[in-house]
């Protein structure tokens, strides 16, 4: 898709996941740092989704276009829901919930990459 953004997305996803697991181990509930980290991650995902969607709707042909667009939608929806669910009950486990969301989103980005590459040889 967009090479640099995709790599940034993986790095930020890994950082968010590790930080979430770290606060679970340290027995701390999600705090402001988690919100900022998730916000940064989400911003990267939204930019990626907008750019990719524009390119699909302006001529880029993909073999599984609808699947690609649904994964694109999923990639931006998971983190806000995960953050909400993680902070609704402020226990140590909130960080792990955020980590699960970040890992799931990272896998979705990976699938997006495969679907994109399939359309470009």
């Amino acid at each position: 898709m967009i090479g640099v953004l995709e790599v940034v997305a993986y790095v930020v996803a890994a950082a968010v996941a590790l930080y979430g697991l770290f606060t679970t181990i340290r027995n701390r509930p999600p705090d402001r740092t988690h919100r900022i980290a998730v916000g940064v991650f989400e911003a990267v995902l939204v930019v990626q989704a907008v750019v990719a969607a524009v390119r699909v709707f302006t001529g880029v042909q993909l073999p599984e276009q609808s699947t690609f667009l649904i994964y694109l939608l999923v990639s931006v929806c998971v983190m806000p829901i995960a953050l909400q669910f993680a902070t609704a009950e402020p226990t140590r486990w909130g960080g792990t919930v955020i980590a699960v969301g970040a890992i799931g989103t990272g896998v979705a980005v990976w699938r997006l990459h495969d679907l994109w590459v399939a359309g470009h040889g």
């Binding site: 999923v74 829901i81 009950e89 226990t91 792990t96 919930v97 699960v100 969301g101 799931g104």
Partner: peptide, 21 residues
């Protein structure tokens, strides 16, 4: 409650990806 929320998060992601796919 507690660690159960992590389990729910994993189930929710599988629910989303499996039904979407």
């Amino acid at each position: 409650s507690g660690p159960g929320r992590v389990l729910i998060a994993v189930y929710a992601i599988f629910a989303l990806s499996a039904t979407a796919r």
